[in-house]
Design a protein around this nucleic acid. Structure first.
Lengths: 215, 215
DNA sequence: CTCGCAAAGTTAGTATGACTAACATATGTT
DNA sequence: AACATATGTTAGTCATACTAACTTTGCGAG
């Protein structure tokens, strides 16, 4: 899915030495490079283990370089999470492909993809929802999240044969969201395994969707 | 930014203020004092805004003092969260008082108290479940959480007229936990208000308990 | 009672990380 | 070609986690 090269091109060891050290003073697209480095490190070390210095080392620049592109560490994280949310939304939309309109399977597909993202891009997910710092409450992030939730609401409305997104639809959507959201956290924490549960994720999602979409 | 003074009353140095600081060379119970300071600060500044130095200032000791009682910052947090989990469990047990055995109201009462704790002691809750650092995965914390979940399982079993905690009970309990867990996160993030929802927490809990405990 | 030792504090110092200031180099109009 | 600007660097400040080595205090054995 993601084809990423090394962030800093190894930049061939200057075959013609003697000449001035002409090896790329400018990175090319450091902003993107830093976001990618941030993403990797957050996934690897966790949101609180991440440091700007590490990102700089990964990107191969000095520790002052990021501040030409981001106000501070927090803005780096916000930018990274923002990209993640876009992927999140795209993945959810893609998960709907080929499933007939108005069927509950569309809702469970969204749920599965939600959990999947949370478990795959744990760092992003936890930064966005884990209550890391109040500082991460950027309006653009809120907006992106809202858009994603609207996808769910649309499907719930379709399942309920509602032409509009009514309060009832919103309520059911929120119930489903709560469940899937909590599930994401608990599965990451391995709570299911801890209690010796051998429950299948899909059957659980189907179960809850059935319960919440009915009546 | 740091306008912090000592919180404890500077007057009456010999008075036992029972708070965080004693004026003697030896604190008396610095371990407890530091845990309390940690709790306050985590609630105030958030889990990631917390610093050992701040806790020391609050407790009125030097920045090296904590290391006579805790291995490192992480152990301070673990100790603090541990105390929180005990409160959490006690609160949930207390919430059951006076509600007839085997009634679904007992389950919703547990849910209400769960959410209430998450919203009241946000810092503790997020430290435990927000996925801060893997380092916080102390077996004693896992154990404490398991005990609390067992309270839920017992009530679910009673509602279902099961003498034992069967796989079915465990499954339904887990569904409920997921929901309430996710709800805790979303409510803190104010997602409900953001979507213009005017849904009552209690009615929502009753709703979901009804759906999951039935059939 | 007091002696001495361990527990519990202290000060001073190291290492690392976030961020800033001042300087250096590349880049793209014109 | 030249300058303005974007983008990068080095060097330094400040805060924090943690350690080392010293000091004070409580307390138990003789």
């Amino acid at each position: 899915m993601n084809k990423r090269e090394k962030i800093t091109d190894p930049a061939l060891p200057d075959a013609d030495d003697g000449a001035l050290k002409k090896s790329r003073y400018h990175h090319g697209d450091l902003r993107a490079g830093l976001i990618e480095a941030t993403r990797r490190l957050v996934e690897e070390k966790g949101p609180d283990g991440f440091s700007v210095s590490d990102a700089c080392r990964l990107a191969g620049v000095s520790t002052a370089a990021p501040y030409k592109h981001f106000k501070d560490k927090n803005e780096m994280l916000v930018a990274m999470v923002m990209e993640g949310m876009v992927r999140h939304r795209d993945n959810m939309l893609a998960a709907l492909e080929g499933i007939p309109e108005g069927s509950p399977e569309r809702v469970t597909a969204l749920g599965r993809e939600y959990v999947n993202f949370a478990l795959t891009e744990t760092g992003v997910f936890r930064l966005k929802f884990g209550g890391f710092s109040d500082r991460l409450e950027d309006p653009r992030l809120q907006e992106a999240g809202q858009q994603t939730f609207n996808i769910v609401l649309r499907e719930v409305a379709a399942c309920r044969n509602e032409p509009e997104i009514t309060d009832d639809v919103r309520r059911r959507g929120f119930l489903l969201w709560s469940f899937v959201h909590g599930l994401s956290f608990l599965l990451y924490d391995k709570k299911l395994k801890d209690m010796g549960g051998d429950v299948e994720l899909v059957s659980m999602l189907t179960d809850i969707a059935y319960r919440v979409l009915r009546d």
